[in-house]
C-alpha cells in the first residue's frame, strides 16, 4: 500500500514534466516557479524544524556510554566512545556524523565452518556510508553549474571523482556508487520482512525520489547528453535571481529539476530531517561528566517529598524503641 502509493506519486512526478515538455508549455513554472518555491520551503522548513528542536531544552545529561568512563587515573577511559570532555564529545560526534560509528558497531565478520560471513548490518553500514558520501560529492560537484568562475576545489573534486577516465564524458565514480547504494537500500527494505513490516510511505518515497534524481541525472550525462551550457545558463540565472529559460534543455532535464524540487520541499516534513537531528541527539553530543559538573535543568521544579521531620514524626516510637538517634526529642 505505502509502496504502491509512493510509486504512483513518483510516476506522476515523472510524467508531468514529460507531458509538459511534449506539449511545449509550463516551462516557466517547472524550471523557475517550482524550484524557487521548493527552495524557499526547504530553507524555511529546515530552520523551523531545527529551531523547534533547539527550543526544547535538554533537562538531563543522558549520554549513552559506549566504553569505560573516566574515573580512576590508572584506568584507561574510552575518550571517544564515552567522552568526559566537550572536546571528546565533539570527537564522538565527528565519528558519528562522518563515519557512522554506531552503525559500524553492528559489524561482525566471522567464520562459520569454512565460510566467512558478513551480516546484513555490515552492508547497512557500508551502504549508508557509500550513499551519503557520494551524495555529498555529487551535491558539491553541482556547484560548478551555479557559480562562475567555478571554484578550484570543485573542479578538483570532479577530477578526482572521474579519476578512472572511463568513457566520454568521463564516468563519475560517485554516480555509480550512489546508484548501487540506493538500489541496495531499496532492496533491503523489500527483502527483509522485518523492515517491510515497519516501512512507511516516507521510507519508500524518499528512496524513489533519490533514485529518480540519480537516474535522470545519469541519463542526461551519459545518455541524452544535455546541453550543459544551457543548464548552466538557467542555474546561474536562478542563483542570481535573474532567471532565464534557455532553449535546448531537453525532456529529461525538467524531470530532474522537478524531482529535486520535490525532495527539497518534502525534506523538512520528513524523516530526511535526520540530517539536522543527528547533531542534536542528547545521547551522543553530551560529555559523560555528570558527576564532575552539575547539569542544570531549566524547568526543574520543587516536588512533594516525604521530609525527614515527617518521617521521624511517623516512626518516632519505633525509632526510640530501636535506639536510633532522633533529631528532636519530645517530652510527653
Amino acid at each position: 500500500m505505502d509502496l504502491l502509493s509512493s510509486f504512483l506519486i513518483m510516476a506522476a512526478l515523472v510524467a508531468v514534466p514529460l507531458l509538459a515538455g511534449v506539449a511545449g508549455g509550463g516551462q516557466g513554472v517547472l524550471l523557475v516557479g517550482i524550484p524557487y518555491a521548493a527552495f524557499a520551503i526547504f530553507i524555511v522548513g529546515l530552520c523551523w524544524r531545527v529551531v523547534g528542536w533547539a527550543r526544547s531544552p535538554v533537562p538531563f545529561r543522558i549520554p549513552t556510554t559506549c566504553g569505560q568512563q573516566k574515573s580512576l587515573p590508572w584506568i584507561k577511559s574510552a575518550t571517544l566512545d564515552n567522552p568526559s570532555t566537550g572536546t571528546g564529545a565533539v570527537g564522538r560526534m565527528a565519528l558519528e556524523v562522518l563515519l557512522f560509528r554506531s552503525l559500524f558497531r553492528n559489524n561482525r565478520a566471522e567464520m562459520y565452518g569454512q565460510r566467512y560471513v558478513f551480516g546484513d548490518s555490515k552492508w547497512l553500514w557500508l551502504g549508508a556510508l557509500a550513499f551519503h558520501w557520494s551524495l555529498l560529492v555529487i551535491v558539491l560537484r553541482h556547484l560548478r553549474l551555479f557559480v562562475q568562475p567555478v571554484p578550484a576545489c570543485v573542479l578538483a573534486l570532479g577530477k578526482v571523482d572521474s579519476f578512472f577516465q572511463i568513457g566520454a564524458p568521463a564516468l563519475y565514480l560517485s554516480n555509480v556508487i550512489v546508484l548501487c547504494a540506493l538500489m541496495y537500500l531499496m532492496l533491503r527494505r523489500l527483502w527483509d520482512l522485518r523492515l517491510r513490516y515497519i516501512c512507511q510511505f516516507s521510507d519508500y518515497f524518499a528512496l524513489f525520489l533519490l533514485l529518480g534524481i540519480a537516474l535522470s541525472g545519469v541519463l542526461m550525462r551519459y545518455g541524452t547528453r544535455v546541453d550543459v551550457v544551457a543548464v548552466k545558463q538557467l542555474a546561474i540565472g536562478l542563483a542570481t535571481f535573474q532567471p532565464v529559460i534557455p532553449a535546448g534543455l531537453g525532456l529529461v532535464f525538467p524531470v530532474h529539476v522537478l524531482l529535486v524540487s520535490t525532495l527539497a520541499a518534502y525534506f523538512p516534513f520528513s524523516k530526511l530531517m535526520h540530517m539536522g537531528g543527528v547533531f542534536l541527539s542528547p545521547t551522543r553530543n553530551l560529555a559523560n561528566n555528570s558527576r564532575m559538573k552539575r547539569h542544570v535543568n531549566p524547568w526543574n521544579y520543587p516536588v512533594k517529598t516525604h521530609t525527614y521531620a515527617e518521617w521521624e514524626e511517623e516512626f518516632r516510637d519505633k525509632l526510640t524503641m530501636a535506639g536510633i538517634p532522633l533529631d528532636e526529642a519530645k517530652n510527653d
Binding site: R108, Y112, G119, D192, L193, R194, Y197
Partner: peptide
C-alpha cells in the same frame, strides 16, 4: 511471526 522468520533463518551468530 512472519517478519521474524528470515532473521531466525539467516542470522548465524549464536548470540545475536
Amino acid at each position: 511471526p512472519g517478519e521474524t522468520v528470515l532473521f531466525l533463518t539467516t542470522e548465524r551468530d549464536q548470540f545475536r
